[in-house]
Design a protein around this nucleic acid. Structure first.
Lengths: 212, 212
DNA sequence: ACCTGAACACCGTTCAAGT
DNA sequence: ACCTGAACACCGTTCAAGT
C-alpha cells in the first residue's frame, strides 16, 4: 500500500518531519524511513536534497498564493498588501523556522505570480506606478520575513530555554548602565498586535509614495 | 607556533571558512584542519557547534556595535536609524548568507546595547516615546534582515546559476498571462540605491509615529 | 591545561543489480 | 518504471589516554 512514493508525498513527509524534529531532523534517511523505503529510492524522485528543500519552499508559497486567491479582493492596495502580509506570516508560522528556511525560496511560483498580476492591474488603474507597486510588494515581503524570523527565534528559544528571554534574567544581565533599554524591554509586546502595528507603519510609509 | 588555539582564533577561522566555502563548509573537522589540530581538540574550547555558531553571530554583531560607536552621532533619530541600517547591511554583506545565518543571533551584545541606550536617551529627550523608539529599532532591523536575505540570495544564485535570474529566461517562464509582472521585472533595480529608497519608505512610516 | 587517538552513531549520494 | 544493497566519503561528539 506504500507503492506510490510520489514527489508530493515526499514533500509532505518532509514538512511533517520539519515540524516534528526541526531542520536538523529533515534528513534523507529519516525521510526514507518515514516513507517505508530505502534512502536511495528517493533519488529516483528527487535530484538531491537541495531540490527537495526548494520543493518544500514552493509548496509553502503555493499555499500563500491559493489562500490569497480565496480571499475577497480588498478595496485598495493597502487592503491587498495587509492581507498578503498576514497570510505570508501565517504560512511561515505553520512551520518550525519557517521564515528563515523558506524566505529564500523563489516567490515566483505560478500561483503567486497570478495574484501579483491581478494586484498590479487594479493598483495601476488607480494611478499607482508599476515600479512603486513592485517596490511595495517586495518591501512588505522583506518586512514580514524579518519580523517572523525574530518572532520564531523568540518563541522557539522560549520553549527550549525559558530563562533566555525572561525579563528578570535580562535585567540582571543588562546591569545598571542601560536603564532605558531595560525599561523598553518591559514595554515590549509580542504576537498579532505587534505585527499589525509594525505593518501599519510600513504601509504608512508606502502610502506617501503610492498616493497619486 | 600554532600553540594557542583560542576561542577567538576558532571564530575567526570559522568566519573565513564560511566566506570561502559557504555554510555547508563550516564543519568542525574542516575547522580543525585549518587550525592544524585534531577535531576533538576544539571541544576543549567550545561546548558544541551550536555554541560556535552563536559565537560567530556575536562577533558580527560586535562589529556592528563598534562601527556605530565610531560614527559621529546623527542630528536626530532618523539619521541614527539610517546609519544603523547601513552598517547592519554592510556587516551582513561581508559574509556569505550573512543575513540568513546571523539574523537570529541575540542582538543583545554589550556593544550594541550601549549604542541603543545612547539613542534612547537622545530620542526621548526630543519627545519620542520609549516604546516607539524600541519599535523603531526592531522594525528597521526586521526590514534590513528581510532585504539583505533577498539581496544575498539573488547575488549568490546569480554567480552559481546565471540563467536563474536572467530577464529573458524569466520572461519566457512567465508566459503571456502576466504582462505587468513581466514589465515590473524590467523596472526592478538592485543594490545601494534600492536599499536607500526602501529604507526611506520605512523611515517615512516611522516619522508619522515618532514626531511629537 | 591542552591535545591526540580511537571509536560511535550518524550523514548525502552513487550505482549496479533486482523486479 | 521503480526500488534495493552495498559502498564511499563524509559528519558531530565523547572520552580515555597522553604531555
Amino acid at each position: 500500500m506504500n507503492k506510490g512514493v510520489t514527489r508530493d508525498r515526499i514533500v509532505t513527509a518532509a514538512l511533517d518531519l520539519l515540524d516534528e524534529k526541526g531542520m536538523d531532523g529533515v534528513t534523507v534517511r529519516a525521510l526514507a524511513t518515514r516513507l517505508d523505503v530505502r534512502p536511495s529510492a528517493l533519488y529516483w524522485h528527487v535530484r538531491n536534497k537541495r531540490e527537495l528543500l526548494d520543493e518544500m519552499g514552493t509548496a509553502v508559497m503555493r499555499r500563500v498564493g491559493s489562500a490569497l486567491s480565496e480571499l475577497p479582493p480588498g478595496d485598495d492596495w493597502r487592503d491587498d498588501l495587509a492581507a498578503f502580509a498576514s497570510v505570508l506570516r501565517a504560512e511561515f508560522l505553520r512551520h518550525r523556522d519557517g521564515a528563515r528556511i523558506f524566505s529564500g525560496t523563489r516567490i515566483a511560483d505560478p500561483e503567486v505570480v497570478r495574484v501579483k498580476e491581478f494586484w498590479f492591474v487594479r493598483w495601476t488603474a488607480c494611478g499607482v506606478g508599476l515600479s512603486d507597486a513592485d517596490d511595495a510588494v517586495d518591501l512588505v515581503t522583506a518586512f514580514v520575513v524579518g519580523f517572523v524570523i525574530e518572532e520564531q527565534e523568540h518563541r522557539q528559544s522560549a520553549e527550549t530555554d525559558p530563562a533566555r528571554y525572561s525579563l528578570a534574567e535580562r535585567d540582571a544581565w543588562l546591569g545598571g548602565d542601560a536603564p532605558l533599554v531595560k525599561r523598553a524591554g518591559h514595554l515590549h509586546d509580542h504576537g498579532d498586535q505587534r505585527f499589525e502595528r509594525h505593518l501599519d507603519i510600513v504601509l504608512d510609509g508606502l502610502a506617501a509614495r503610492l498616493k497619486v
